[in-house]
């Protein structure tokens, strides 16, 4: 599904990603871990097409196509979803309007008809239950005045509605208490299917108790310095990152 080869990316004149190689197949859950400043979030943002980062070398192939050549909206229409570490507040646009606009854009890209408001309301009812969200949140402006936990749940709600093929969760666990973490993780787990994949970017092992990865990668200094199974996350929890970092930073 996704093949990243020798990916280098800069922000301004600072090189952050220094040669990432990663392959994700359908049905898999990958965890990308690493200390602060290792490039985890940059990798997530580059996959979504954030304009602040420039890819200077390498390739990313998604479903056989050149992902880096696509605009962010095309990537989303092709099934890529980034759950933001800091979801953006958009005063003046209601959550419901925003979700329906996004949903219809993605349907259009798939060659499907726009959904009528009634059917969309039914869909929302169903998906909101997944993340235990109060329906009143739908009429509020996108993320505006939401608590940290509400914003993260709202991200997962969007994911549940848009049904991406490849979801990238960027530190979705940061700032969540244990109840919110469980709700978010349950949402993600219930959306898992054999034909989609998830990349979970996280600093802590905690989230991986709930979203169990097939592979764990440790990012340091803009490179993957170790890959393994889910047991690697437990080892990191126990030993920290330092033992992997020696010699990793060029």
């Amino acid at each position: 599904m996704l093949e990243i080869k020798n990916l280098h990316a800069t922000a301004g004149d600072k090189e952050i990603l220094r040669g990432i190689d990663l392959t994700v197949n359908a049905g898999e859950v990958h965890a990308v871990m690493g200390p602060n400043g290792s490039g985890k979030s940059t990798l997530a943002q580059v996959l979504a097409g954030h304009p602040a980062y420039e890819v200077t070398a390498g390739t990313v192939t998604y479903e056989g196509e050149d992902l880096l050549a696509m605009d962010p909206e095309v990537r989303a229409q092709q099934g890529i979803f980034l759950a933001f570490q800091y979801p953006v507040e958009i005063p003046g646009v209601s959550n419901a309007y925003f979700l329906r606009a996004a949903y219809n854009e993605i349907r259009k890209a798939r060659g499907e008809e726009e959904i009528d408001p009634m059917s969309f309301a039914d869909l929302m009812d169903e998906r909101m239950k997944l993340v235990e969200m109060d329906p009143a949140m739908l009429s509020r402006s996108v993320n505006t005045g939401f608590s940290g936990g509400e914003k993260k749940r709202n991200e997962i709600l969007q994911m549940a509605v848009l049904e991406p093929k490849l979801a990238v969760l960027d530190e979705t666990d940061s700032g969540l208490d244990i109840d919110a973490l469980r709700i978010v993780a349950n949402g993600v787990n219930s959306l898992k299917r054999p034909d989609n994949a998830t990349i979970v970017v996280t600093h802590y092992q905690r989230l991986l108790n709930y979203i169990v990865p097939d592979f764990v990668h440790v990012l340091a200094g803009g490179r993957i310095v170790r890959s393994g199974g889910k047991e690697l996350a437990l080892e990191l929890e126990e030993k920290g990152y330092d033992w992997l970092l020696e010699g990793a930073v060029a």
Partner: peptide, 24 residues
């Protein structure tokens, strides 16, 4: 970028944000 990352095209995103600025 947030709106585009949800599949909304650049022009629509600009229009919607402009309107939202006033609607607020």
């Amino acid at each position: 970028f947030y709106m585009k990352s949800r599949g909304i095209d650049a022009r629509t995103a600009r229009e919607l944000l402009t309107y939202a600025f006033a609607a607020d």
